[in-house]
Computed example of a mutant assay.
Amino acid sequence: MTALGFLYPGHSAEDDYPRMEQMLAGGVRLQVVHTDIGEDAHRLDALVEMGSPARLAAGVEELRLSGAEAVVWACTSGSFVLGWEGAHDQVRELARAAGLPASSTSFAFAHAVREVGAVRVAVAATYPQDVTSHFAAFLRAAGLEVVAERAGDIGTAAEVGTWGRAEVLALARAGDHPDAQAVLLPDTALHTAAHLRELEAELGKPVLTANQVTVWEALRLAERRLNAPELGSLFTKEPVVQVRG
């Protein structure tokens, strides 16, 4: 049994993790520990505080006791708002505190885009425009080309957590672009695990979502590779959706 640890801010879409654990069906346990979200606001200062070392360190001991082999800070905005170098510092501090390989959802997106063979991406975000632009800048620092940014202008994770299938599909459609080889939905407060195959069928290209890439990143850190088509082309050995040039 491979145990993987996730530090998840507050309570919004954490039920995606037991759902994905069932979909993986490969001797993997996904252990979620909730961190104090502080002020629930998609605002730059609040997001920086949400990912502060003290808030992350508070959940580390519980993950260690769970036997986790790797830990991922399961938050996109609470990492990319620090910028490329700041996000690296955050992960290094987390790895030191946990004594485990560590990463964050922001880096998970950068790695997952390469995994599906894409370079040009479209961002379909729930965030306000200023936060969305920070994510696009992070992706560019990772060497990716952002061909479109769609900002949903939602102010809190709590509101995002109430979205269902219709809202998720509408966001992805609105954020897609003909030149994009993959579409990214960067918010771990968004329920997406149940919709990944439908999203990719609808758009005809890989769709990468925050909780999906977070779990994939933890598996990567633990050197596990599992085939789970229900979780989209990222989790298939042979992509079910071919990237278009």
Rank of each mutant, 00 (worst) to 15 (best):
M1K: 02
M1N: 01
G5I: 11
F6I: 04
L7D: 02
H11M: 14
D15I: 09
D16K: 05
Y17L: 09
Y17D: 07
M20A: 07
M23F: 07
L24A: 12
A25V: 09
A25H: 08
G26I: 03
G26M: 05
G27S: 04
V28T: 06
R29T: 03
R29N: 00
L30K: 09
V32Q: 11
V32N: 13
H34V: 10
D36C: 10
I37F: 08
E39W: 02
D40T: 04
A41D: 00
H42R: 00
H42F: 03
R43Q: 13
A46D: 01
A46K: 04
E49G: 05
M50E: 11
M50I: 08
A54L: 07
A57L: 10
G59P: 12
V60E: 03
E61G: 11
R64F: 07
L65P: 00
A68C: 15
E69P: 12
V71W: 13
V72K: 11
W73K: 09
S77Y: 06
S77H: 05
G78Q: 03
G78N: 06
G78P: 06
H88A: 13
D89E: 14
Q90M: 08
R92F: 02
E93V: 13
E93Q: 15
L94W: 12
A97E: 13
A98Y: 02
G99V: 12
P101C: 13
F107Q: 10
R114P: 10
E115D: 02
R120N: 00
A125F: 05
Y127M: 02
P128A: 09
P128Y: 04
Q129M: 08
Q129C: 00
S133C: 06
H134Y: 00
L139Y: 01
L139P: 01
G143M: 03
V146K: 07
R150P: 00
G155R: 13
G155C: 05
E159D: 14
V160M: 08
G164L: 10
G164I: 09
A172K: 13
A174Y: 08
A174E: 13
G175A: 11
D179R: 15
Q181H: 11
A182W: 01
D187S: 11
T188Y: 04
T188Q: 07
T188M: 03
A189M: 05
H191N: 08
H191Q: 12
T192M: 05
H195F: 15
H195T: 13
E198T: 15
E198Q: 15
E202G: 09
L203D: 04
G204L: 07
V207Y: 03
Q212H: 05
W216C: 11
L221N: 02
A222Q: 05
A222P: 03
L226K: 08
N227P: 10
A228Q: 05
G232E: 05
T236I: 10
K237Y: 08
